[in-house]
Structures are given as C-alpha cells and as structure tokens.
Amino acid sequence: MDCVGRLMITKLSHRLGTIAGLVTDGARVADIGSDHALLPVYLVSKGQCPSAIAGELNQGPYEAARRQVREAGLSQKVDVRKGNGMAVVTPGETDTVTIAGMGGHLIATILEEGRVAGKLEQVKELVLQPNVGEDAVRHWLTEHGWALMEERILEEDGKIYEVLRATRVEDAALHNGELYKALHLPVQANSLISDDEAVELIYRFGPYLLAEPNEVFYLKWDSELRKMDRICTQMEQSGADEAIVRAKQFRLEMAQIEEVLACLRKDKP
C-alpha cells in the first residue's frame, strides 16, 4: 500500500500538484468533478489530508475513480461518490472544496448551487482551477463573502492554467475591496480607462497575478490578444452591422489589455 501511495504521488501533474499545494494541511477535502480521483488519492496518501470525497457525475470516470482509490488501498479514507456538483457533499463533512478543469461560469454555478443548498456553510477554503472564465469565479467569490488569498498561473503541455485559493474570513469585503481597487491597475498617465473598466480588468487579469506577473502571465495575454484579433478580423469581414459593432468593442478591450501589458513590461525590473 505504501509503494502504491508513493507511485500515485510521483504521477501527479504540475497542474494538480499546484492545486494540492494550496490545500491547507489537515483539511478534509471534497474534490468536485474528480475524474480519476488523482488529487484526493494524492492528498490522502501523502498524509496532507485525513480524508477526502471524490465526486464525479459521469459513470466512466466514477468507475475509474473507484478503481484508483481501491488500488491505492485508500477505500477507508477516500469516499468516491456519484452525483452532480456539490450534491455529493453533506454539510459539515468537509473543510476544503476543490474544483478543477471546468469553465469558470460552470464552477460559479456549482458553487452557487452548493451555497443555496447549504453545502458551503462550514467549508473554510476553496481551491479552484477554471480552464476559462476566471473572472466569473472571482466575481462569485467577491459577491458571496469569500476572500481571494492566493493565485497561481502555470503552463503544462502547451496549456495555461490559473489556480485560485479563497477562504472565509470576517473582513472578506474589506479584503476584496482592497484587492480590486481601480488604482491598482497599471495604466498610462493619460489613460482613457474608467475606474469601472479598471476594476473589471483586475477581475480579468487576477489581482495577485497582476501584482507579480511572470512569463506565463505574459504568454497567456499575448495569446489572448492574438485570438481576439482573429475574431475581430472575422467579424469585420462579415460586413454585418452587429458584428462590426461587436468588433469595435473587442478592439477597445484589446487596446486596454495592451496598455496594461505595456505598463507592466515598462515597470519590469
């Protein structure tokens, strides 16, 4: 059993390893959309978490998760459950919820459904890895009293991922209010970006990632600009009035992103 546990640890990907690194030691964890249960198996086999729930909706991954847990000899500590989102969790049985590998809007929906059902009442920590739409997750956290505490950005196999960690604290509103202040956005002296637009850009970039941008951060946003440019060109070539209006909006967004990136690069030591 010990050998199998060690094998599971060595096979954890950079993405899942980053998520695991943000989970508080000693926390009972629920991994929603767990796929093959690699993350819960790692956390428990390492001794970082005393127990875990692996929730999975689809039958194939659910069976694979059960097999993974069984082969790791962790059936008494990792409970694999079949169900949709937070439906697999009973209030009070988990300290940390992890959700990874989904779109940001879907993650926000899962969290909201869990909140309405009372599944998050005693949860202390969220570790979330949206594939896209990270701003939707940040907005949900702010709107529901979760303090964003850490962010990571990484590249693996040609894909870029962001990982967010949030906790429930009494002064979450003050904490988040400070994070998303318009004045924190690096802009030119004569910038036309309004305060509201600046705040929204911080939600989009990520306040911690914006404060300490690394090479992966720049890689992501350079790639995003290229994608937006291709979309704009297609819309402009279509000739449709609605598409042309939308393309103009995209061009404005691109100009704002480019301004921020230029200021960040200028300030780079």
Rank of each mutant, 00 (worst) to 15 (best):
E156Y: 10
E134P: 00
G158I: 04
G114T: 07
G103H: 12
L148P: 04
E150C: 03
Q129A: 12
T167F: 00
G83W: 08
E63M: 14
E93Y: 01
T98S: 14
S75A: 04
N84W: 15
R138P: 09
G92Y: 02
D171T: 13
N84G: 11
W146G: 03
A65S: 09
D171H: 13
R152D: 00
E150K: 12
G114H: 05
A65R: 11
H139A: 06
D157F: 08
E155N: 08
W146R: 06
L120S: 00
P130L: 00
Q68R: 10
L106F: 00
P91M: 10
R81L: 09
G83T: 11
R67A: 06
N58D: 11
K124F: 04
V89W: 01
A65M: 11
G145H: 10
I160F: 08
G114Y: 05
I110W: 06
P130F: 03
K124W: 05
G103L: 14
T109R: 05
G60M: 12
L120D: 02
D95F: 13
E143I: 03
I160M: 09
E155I: 13
L154G: 14
S75T: 06
G158W: 06
G145M: 01
L164W: 01
G73R: 12
Q129M: 08
T142C: 14
P91N: 07
R168V: 08
R115Y: 11
P130A: 01
Q59E: 15
G118K: 09
T90A: 15
E143M: 04
R115I: 12
Y161E: 10
G60W: 12
R70D: 05
V137M: 02
G103P: 12
K77W: 15
A64G: 00
E150Q: 13
R115K: 14
E121P: 00
D157K: 15
A100F: 03
E71D: 11
E150I: 03
T94C: 15
Q59S: 13
A100G: 07
K124H: 10
G83S: 07
A147M: 03
G158Y: 02
T167M: 01
T96I: 10
Y62F: 15
Y62A: 09
W146I: 08
G114S: 05
Y161Q: 07
I110A: 03
A172L: 13
D135M: 01
L141N: 07
L141Q: 07
G83F: 03
T94Y: 09
L111C: 02
E63H: 13
G133C: 02
D135G: 00
T98L: 13
G104I: 11
K124S: 09
L154Q: 14
G103I: 14
G103E: 05
V116H: 01
E162K: 13
E125D: 11
D157E: 15
V169N: 06
N84H: 15
E150H: 12
G73I: 15
A147T: 02
R66G: 15
E125N: 12
I107T: 02
R66W: 07
E71W: 11
V89C: 07
V137Q: 00
G101N: 10
L120H: 00
V88P: 02
K77C: 09
